[in-house]
Amino acid sequence: MLAKLEPHLPISDRHELDVPQKRGVWWSSQQQHMVHWFSDAVTRGSGAFTRAEPNTSAHTTL
C-alpha cells in the first residue's frame, strides 16, 4: 500500500520538517524510507535495519 502512495504527502512532508534526521539520509521521501524499511523487515535486514531475526509480525512492526 505504501508503495502506491504519492512520494510526498502533507503529513509525511510535515513530519520531515518537524522531526528532521540528525544525519544525512539516503531516501528522497518518507514513502521511500518506509517501503524499504518494511521490505527489509521480513529479512535479517541490512545496514541500520539489521536485526537478529526476521520480523514477520505486523503487530511487532508497529
Rank of each mutant, 00 (worst) to 15 (best):
T60K: 11
F49G: 08
L62V: 05
H15I: 14
G45Q: 02
D18I: 04
H36T: 09
T61Q: 11
P20Y: 05
R44F: 12
V25A: 12
V42Q: 13
S39R: 07
V42C: 02
D18Y: 02
I11E: 11
Q32R: 04
D13H: 04
D13I: 01
Q31N: 03
P7S: 15
L5N: 06
T50Q: 14
R51D: 04
P7D: 15
V42L: 03
L9Y: 03
F38Q: 02
G24H: 04
D18Q: 09
M34N: 01
S12G: 09
R23N: 14
T56I: 03
A41R: 02
K4Y: 06
G24C: 08
S46C: 10
Q21L: 03
Q32D: 13
Q31S: 00
W37S: 04
T43H: 01
H36Q: 09
G45V: 00
N55I: 14
S57Q: 05
L62S: 14
P7I: 15
A58L: 11
T56V: 07
V19D: 07
W26D: 13
W26M: 09
Q31I: 00
W37R: 06
L2F: 07
S29P: 01
Q32L: 09
K22A: 13
V42T: 15
S29E: 07
W37H: 04
W27K: 02
N55Y: 01
V19L: 11
K4Q: 09
D18A: 12
L2M: 11
V35K: 00
P7K: 10
T60D: 15
Q32S: 05
Q30T: 02
P10A: 12
H8C: 10
S39L: 08
A48G: 05
A58H: 03
D40Y: 05
R14G: 02
T43K: 07
T50N: 12
Q31G: 00
P10F: 10
L9Q: 09
E16F: 03
H59M: 10
T43Q: 01
I11V: 12
W26N: 10
G47I: 01
W27T: 10
H15G: 11
V19M: 11
V35T: 01
H15E: 12
E6H: 07
A52P: 03
E53A: 09
V42W: 00
T43F: 01
R14T: 13
D40L: 15
W26H: 13
D13S: 14
K4S: 14
R23F: 11
W27C: 05
A48Q: 12
R51L: 10
W26F: 06
R51E: 05
S12I: 11
R14S: 14
D13M: 07
G45E: 00
E53T: 08
S46Y: 04
W26Q: 09
S29W: 00
M1V: 14
A41N: 04
Q30R: 12
H36Y: 09
L2R: 07
D40H: 06
L5V: 06
T50S: 13
V42H: 06
D13Q: 13
T61M: 15
H36P: 05
M1I: 10
A48V: 06
V42R: 07
P54Q: 07
Q30N: 15
G45L: 00
R14Q: 13
T43S: 14
H36D: 10
Q32H: 06
S28L: 11
P54E: 02
H59Q: 11
H15R: 08
R51M: 09
Q30Y: 07
E6W: 01
L9I: 14
S29R: 00
L62I: 08
S12Y: 06
W37G: 00
I11P: 05
V35P: 00
T50M: 14
